[in-house]
């Protein structure tokens, strides 16, 4: 395991897909979740964000999703100043970002097919294209045979695959994964990570927030470590830094 390196990754500004410039975020006064963070992620990168609970990892995801606004600084995603987005512009902005969560967040009353198709319906993709695209993406995540199943009939790993299929069907530039293996056993965790790697190889920028030390260390990707709202390490081919 490689720990303690403070080497910063320098990027060409034009290639940045995600940029944090002096970003601070405080939910309550005097307790910043993020403190003066500078971060650049380029097109096609696979990045792990690691850190303790409450270190500010999820706040970074929320800022990228424009769920919250920074208290200070600017966040750019695909060249868009997220702070300046108007409420009505947010839906279109989010369609370029796929997101998966630890708890999958599937629509429980709809089957696998409808959960995935939903992402296409909201961008008004014609029905015949949806009927073509959904089976194709379900095949990619290995769930072609389970399109009629309801989320509660699936295992955790399968539910996460559905969530991945839903996140990917609109071909986003960026895929955010907030603890995607948090509720999965090691076998399913690795299957999901393999899928994420495959997605990344196809050109999608992948940002994974995780606690999974084994996976982070084994995959040898860029690792950003956050502690108390500050980036304490940003390593190319990094590893999980022990907190003590």
């Amino acid at each position: 395991m490689r720990t303690g390196s403070k080497k910063r990754v320098v990027r060409k500004p034009n290639d940045h897909v995600i940029s944090f410039e002096n970003v601070s975020k405080a939910y309550t006064e005097g307790a910043p979740a993020l403190n003066n963070v500078n971060l650049h992620i380029d097109k096609g990168e696979f990045v792990f964000i690691v850190g303790d609970s409450g270190s500010g990892k999820s706040t970074m995801i929320k800022l990228i999703m424009r769920e919250v606004l920074p208290s200070k600084g600017r966040v750019f995603v695909n060249g868009i100043d997220v702070v300046r987005l108007k409420h009505r512009q947010i839906p279109k902005y989010r369609r370029n970002i796929g997101i998966v969560f630890q708890d999958f967040r599937l629509l429980k009353d709809r089957n696998v097919y409808e959960n995935v198709a939903f992402a296409q319906r909201i961008i008004q993709v014609p029905g015949r294209e949806i009927r073509k695209n959904v089976p194709s993406i379900l095949s990619m995540v290995g769930l072609a045979g389970k399109y009629k199943a309801r989320p509660k009939q699936l295992s955790g790993g399968e539910q996460q695959r559905v969530a991945l299929a839903r996140a990917l069907i609109n071909k986003p530039d960026i895929l955010l994964a907030d603890e995607p293996t948090g509720n999965l056993d090691p076998k399913n965790s690795w299957e999901i990570m393999s899928l994420l790697e495959k997605i990344n190889e196809n050109g999608t920028t992948v940002l994974v927030v995780t606690h999974n030390r084994e996976i982070v260390n084994a995959m040898q990707k860029r690792v950003i470590t956050v502690k108390k709202g500050i980036i304490v390490s940003d390593e190319e081919r990094g590893g999980y830094i022990d907190e003590d």
Partner: peptide
């Protein structure tokens, strides 16, 4: 359910 829809990029109308 509303949150999921909003995360995926659904408009307020939808």
């Amino acid at each position: 359910e509303i949150q999921i829809m909003k995360y995926i990029g659904a408009t307020d109308f939808f």
